[in-house]
Write a protein that binds this DNA or RNA. Structure first.
Length: 490
RNA sequence: GGCGCCGUAGUGUAGCGGUUAACACAUCUGACUUUCGAGUCAGACAUCGUGGGUUCGAAUCCCACCGGCGUCCCCA
C-alpha cells in the first residue's frame, strides 16, 4: 500500500493537512507500505521560501515523517525514492509529454483566450444566471488557425475536452457512490501558459507514476474528481482509490479558517500542545474506532485506522476536547521527563527550584492537574515564595469558613501542627494529627483543610492540603498560618 | 445561480428495521474521597433537520422539502 501527502509550499502545515497526512500515513503503515511526501509547487506565485522545511518539520514533530519523497537530511531538503523527482516543479518535462499525448489523441485542445475575454465571459454568464463555464471559443478554431497561432508563439493553455453527454460515477472510499453529469463540468485548464501544469494534470500523472494506491484529500476536491477520472481514462490508466476526507470547520460551520482559529500546526506546537494530544484529537475528528477508546497513541491509530469508519460530515474544530486530551497526555509523561521539560522555566522565576531536592516530589503534585507546561511556574510558586494571601481566599461560604470562627480554626491548626514531631511531618502524619484534632473540636473536615490549604498556597485551587503542607515544611506551614492570623488583626 | 456533498444532545461520535437513543468532552445538579475548578460515583441536557410514505414497528428504508457547507480561477 502506497499513500501520499501532497501539500503546496505556501506556508505552514495546516491542521487539516496534518489530519489528512495522519490518515494517509496510518493506511500505508498498517500494511507495511510507504507514505510519501510530494511537493505541489506548480503555482510559482504562491510558493513561500522555507515552507517545505517548515512542513516537514511539523510532520516530524507529529511523528509522521515521510519514508519516501521529499525528506529532510541534516536539515536540508532532499529527496529519497525511486519514483522521483517528488517536487512538481522538477517534473515539468513529464507533464508536457503527457499533455502532448492528450492533445494528439484529441482529449485536449489549446486555448488562446485572454484573461480579459474569460473574465468578460464569466460576467456575462453570471448576469444571465448561468453556471460560469468556458464557452469553448477556441474549440472552434481550425487546425490551420491553431498551427498559425502556435507558430507565432501566441500564449496559450491546454484545456481538457469534457464529454458533455457522459455521466461519471465513482465509488469513493469514504462517501460511497458519487455521480456527476458531464455537461456540468468545465473544460479545465491542464497546462498553463507558463508551461506549468495545473493541479489536475499533475495529480493524475504523479499519482499514477508514483504508484499511489489510495488518494486521500480534502472534500473540497470532490467536485474535481470527474475531471481526474476522465484523465485516467484518457491516459489508459486505472485510477487509484479515492477517499475524500470531511472538512474541518469553524464554530459557524464554515471551512476552518485563520480568521476564526489557529490553523497552523506550528501554532499549536508553540502554545505547548503535545504532539500526542494534537494527533489524538485530530484522529477523532472524523474517525472513530468503533469502541469507546478515546486515548490513542500513534501506533494504535496506525493499527486501528480504517476508512470505512471515517465520517462524511464536516467536524467543528472545538478546542475543549483537545485541552482535555492534552491534560491526559501530560499525565502520561514520565515524571522525570515532565520535570525536565519545566525545570528551566520554573528556575527562571524561582532560582531555588534549580537546586531544590524536593523538586520531583513537588512536580508530581502538579502533574495531575496541569494542562500546559507554561502553567508550571505559577502552579509551583508557593513552594518557593510566601504567597500573598487575602481574606477572599481564606474565607469560604461553601466550606463554612466565616470570619467569626477563623481565629479559632487557625489556633487549632497552629497548635496541632506545631506540636507534631518532625519525624511525623508527612502527608499521612499530618492527616492523622488533623483527624485527631477534628474529632476533638467538632469542626468539619473541610473547614480545617480549606483554611490550611488556602493559608499555605494562597489560592483556591491547588493540590491537597496534606501534601502541600508536608512539602512546604512544618516551620513554614506554621509561619503561613500565622500570617493569616496577622491579617485578621490588621 | 448550476453541480456536488452533508444533516443524531453545545461539541466530537456510536447506532445499519424492535435499545429507557450509547460513549467522550463541555455545562449544570447531587453524593463520596482529603479542602479545590483534581479524583470516584450517580443524575440532568437529543422535537434523531422538517413533512409525508413503506412497515405491526423507522434515527435506521423510500420520496419531497428545508438548512448548512463545498465547488464553479492559467489556486491548490
Amino acid at each position: 500500500m502506497r499513500t501520499r501527502f501532497a501539500p503546496s509550499p505556501t506556508g505552514f502545515l495546516h491542521v487539516g493537512g496534518l489530519r489528512t497526512a495522519l490518515y494517509a500515513c496510518a493506511l500505508a503503515k498498517q500494511n507495511g507500505g510507504q507514505f510519501l511526501l510530494r511537493i505541489e509547487d506548480t503555482d510559482q506565485e504562491r510558493n513561500v521560501p522555507g515552507a517545505i522545511e517548515q512542513i516537514i518539520h511539523s510532520l516530524q514533530w507529529a511523528g509522521l515523517a515521510p519514508t519516501e519523497g521529499v525528506v529532510l537530511q541534516d536539515g536540508q531538503v532532499a529527496q529519497a525514492g525511486a519514483k522521483g523527482p517528488y517536487i512538481q516543479s522538477e517534473r515539468l518535462e513529464i507533464y508536457r509529454k503527457h499533455a502532448d499525448l492528450l492533445h494528439e489523441r484529441g482529449y485536449a485542445y489549446p486555448c488562446f483566450c485572454t484573461k480579459d475575454r474569460l473574465e468578460a465571459m464569466r460576467k456575462q454568464q453570471e448576469a444571465a444566471h448561468q453556471a460560469p463555464m468556458y464557452d469553448r471559443h477556441c474549440l472552434q478554431l481550425s487546425t490551420e488557425e491553431i498551427d498559425k497561432k502556435l507558430a507565432a508563439g501566441e500564449p496559450h493553455v491546454l484545456r481538457l475536452k469534457i464529454p458533455r453527454d457522459e455521466v461519471i460515477s465513482f465509488e469513493d472510499d469514504i462517501r460511497g457512490l458519487v455521480t456527476f453529469r458531464g455537461d456540468t463540468i468545465d473544460d479545465q485548464v491542464l497546462l498553463k501558459s507558463d508551461g506549468f501544469p495545473t493541479y489536475h494534470l499533475a495529480h493524475v500523472v504523479d499519482d499514477h507514476l508514483m504508484e499511489i494506491d489510495v488518494v486521500l484529500r480534502g472534500e473540497e476536491w470532490l467536485s474535481s474528481l470527474p475531471k481526474h477520472l476522465l484523465l485516467f481514462q484518457y491516459f489508459g490508466w486505472t485510477p487509484p482509490r479515492y477517499a475524500h476526507v470531511s472538512l474541518l470547520l469553524n464554530k459557524d460551520k464554515s471551512k476552518l479558517s485563520k480568521r476564526q482559529n489557529s490553523v497552523s500546526v506550528d501554532e499549536y506546537r508553540n502554545k505547548g500542545y503535545l504532539p500526542e494530544a494534537l494527533i489524538n484529537f485530530l484522529a477523532l475528528l472524523g474517525w472513530n474506532p468503533g469502541t469507546t477508546q478515546e486515548i490513542f497513541t500513534l501506533e494504535e491509530l496506525i493499527q486501528q485506522f480504517s476508512l470505512d469508519r471515517a465520517q462524511k460530515a464536516g467536524a467543528i474544530f472545538d478546542l475543549e476536547k483537545l485541552d482535555w486530551l492534552q491534560g491526559q497526555w501530560m499525565r502520561k509523561l514520565p515524571l522525570q521527563d515532565f520535570a525536565d521539560r519545566i525545570r528551566e522555566d520554573v528556575g527562571e522565576q524561582y532560582s531555588a527550584a534549580l537546586t531544590d531536592p524536593k523538586f520531583l516530589e513537588r512536580v508530581a503534585l502538579i502533574q495531575e492537574r496541569i494542562i500546559f507546561f507554561h502553567e508550571a511556574p505559577d502552579m509551583l510558586s508557593y513552594f518557593y515564595q510566601e504567597p500573598a494571601v487575602n481574606m477572599d481566599v481564606i474565607l469560604s461560604a461553601k466550606q463554612k469558613v466565616t470570619t467569626d470562627i477563623l481565629a479559632t480554626i487557625l489556633d487549632l491548626l497552629t497548635k496541632t501542627l506545631e506540636g507534631m514531631a518532625d519525624a511525623n511531618w508527612t502527608a499521612d502524619g499530618i492527616k492523622n494529627a488533623l483527624e485527631q484534632a477534628l474529632t476533638d473540636s467538632g469542626f468539619k473536615r473541610g473547614q480545617l483543610l480549606w483554611v490550611l490549604r488556602a493559608a499555605v498556597t494562597g489560592r483556591d485551587y491547588s493540590p491537597g492540603a496534606y501534601e502541600v503542607a508536608a512539602s512546604v515544611g512544618k516551620e513554614e506551614t506554621v509561619k503561613r498560618l500565622q500570617n493569616v492570623n496577622a491579617l485578621i488583626k490588621s
